[in-house]
Design a protein around this nucleic acid. Structure first.
Lengths: 247, 247
DNA sequence: GTTGTCATGTGGTCGGACCATAACGAAGGT
DNA sequence: ACCTTCGTTATGGTCCGACCACATGACAAC
């Protein structure tokens, strides 16, 4: 066989722009809060068209590293920011919807992450965090709460606990994973045979969880959280798509 | 105070397009493998310009939900895929570089995720997985391995274990988190006072880890993994940027 | 002073042209 | 018949120039 010729597949220009900006971020030359030059100036400097530059900026915006505001003044223009939460949430949500991850995997990930969150929250949660979480639970116990509202509040509770753990990363991951199964959980809740009983059971568990966190009993909170999550996922559809392997 | 008037801030069109496509994905109308219509057809159907459509597609591509190939034939065009790994890796890498997450948070996340990975790998890893991981360790023990090579192989080992855990989601997360600190770990390794001794110690720990996984001793593997990771991170720079809170 | 209006600078959108790539298919030679 | 060659075509990728939307600031009119 002659020398195998690999296709060159040269990068698309917007990817080159992206690499260039990423380099500057990793090298610390671009920090949070910094402003990029206006698109009309930056594009010719980089030697690309404004469209290509804009596609690169769009990517950065997608992953929560950049925001752009039109208009004039100090708030206008493209700024480096640190907002990974939305990006991570959308990513996981879409991939769960696509079946990149089956429900069992998501369950295990939730268990692992939330065990950690509850355990850390038990030692790190501030009084404000606890009051906020308690308020959330109170609203979940109102008799006329609808199923979607209940689902949103449930998400809020778990996210609040994660935030109060003091760990930004696990908090973000917890939130994103919880968000990714929100439609499935909503479906399961609406299909519940005895909704009031289900809600009451969940409320009881949440209250017990918050009590353990308030007492600073991390291990017990983690164990109960695991039990809580496993019980909940047990009511979901068994599985969506085994998806033998990547495409 | 009079009624507070919030600005309307109507969505940008590419975001509307994005929502539209996301809906179809979540609703299951677009599945992995499906092809989208050509940009020149789809844009007028959605009532937007090709540029706006392309920015939306670029976002989807960024989060690993879509790939596009030029040319003709069955491989050409925009296809729905499931490739979250690159997207997650880039996201975390950039945000760690930006200081969205400090080193302590990343350490705790690694501990939590990799404990889970090693524990699951102890019961789920196949013979091929173990052989592959062993080969990686063998190459790390070669005397003339360079520091960057060692770092890459170290990453590979941890990712291989994560993959063999059978959980796609924790595997992806583990890999992404490990990738995000790769530059920092490389820096630490290169600053090691006694590199051969450091490498030997790490190799010994890796070998012990693999042995425990092979024996199916999940809890012990998890404990040793935690110790391994904590010891490693202890050699890194103490902290980068406390970053009081989000902007 | 307050208010209205215009100028300016920024991102956002659009349309159309052209380039690059890869498969297809017809023409032609063997 | 088969294979090669080369033009054709469908697709994404890039570029340009214009215009729109938005927010601020400056200035004029009252």
């Amino acid at each position: 066989m002659a020398a195998e010729w690999r296709p060159v597949r040269q990068s698309r220009t917007h990817e080159l722009v992206l690499e260039r900006i990423e380099e500057q971020v990793v090298a610390g030359e671009l920090k949070a809060g910094d402003r990029l030059p206006p698109e009309r100036e930056l594009a010719p400097v980089l030697g690309v068209s404004r469209s290509a530059l804009r596609e690169a900026l769009r990517v950065l915006e997608t992953i929560g590293v950049l925001v752009a505001h039109a208009g004039r003044g100090p708030d206008a223009g493209a700024r480096i920011v640190r907002n990974p939460d939305d990006a991570l949430g959308r990513l996981l949500r879409l991939h769960v919807a696509l079946g990149s991850y089956n429900l069992h995997d998501v369950l295990e990930a939730r268990v692992v992450l939330e065990r950690s969150s509850f355990e850390a929250a038990a030692t790190h949660a501030s009084a404000e965090d606890l009051a906020e979480a308690e308020e959330t639970l109170r609203r979940m116990q109102e008799p006329d709460v609808t199923v979607p509202e209940f689902n949103d509040l449930d998400t809020s509770f778990h996210v609040q606990i994660a935030r109060s753990s003091g760990n930004q990363l696990t908090s973000t991951l917890t939130s994103a994973v919880r968000e990714s199964v929100r439609p499935l959980i909503l479906e399961a809740l609406e299909a519940a045979e005895d909704w009031p009983a289900t809600a009451a059971a969940l409320n009881a568990e949440h209250t017990a969880l918050l009590t353990l966190v308030r007492e600073g009993n991390g291990p017990a909170a983690a164990d109960l959280a695991e039990q809580h999550i496993r019980g909940f996922h047990g009511t979901l559809v068994p599985d969506t798509d085994p998806s033998p392997s990547g495409d």
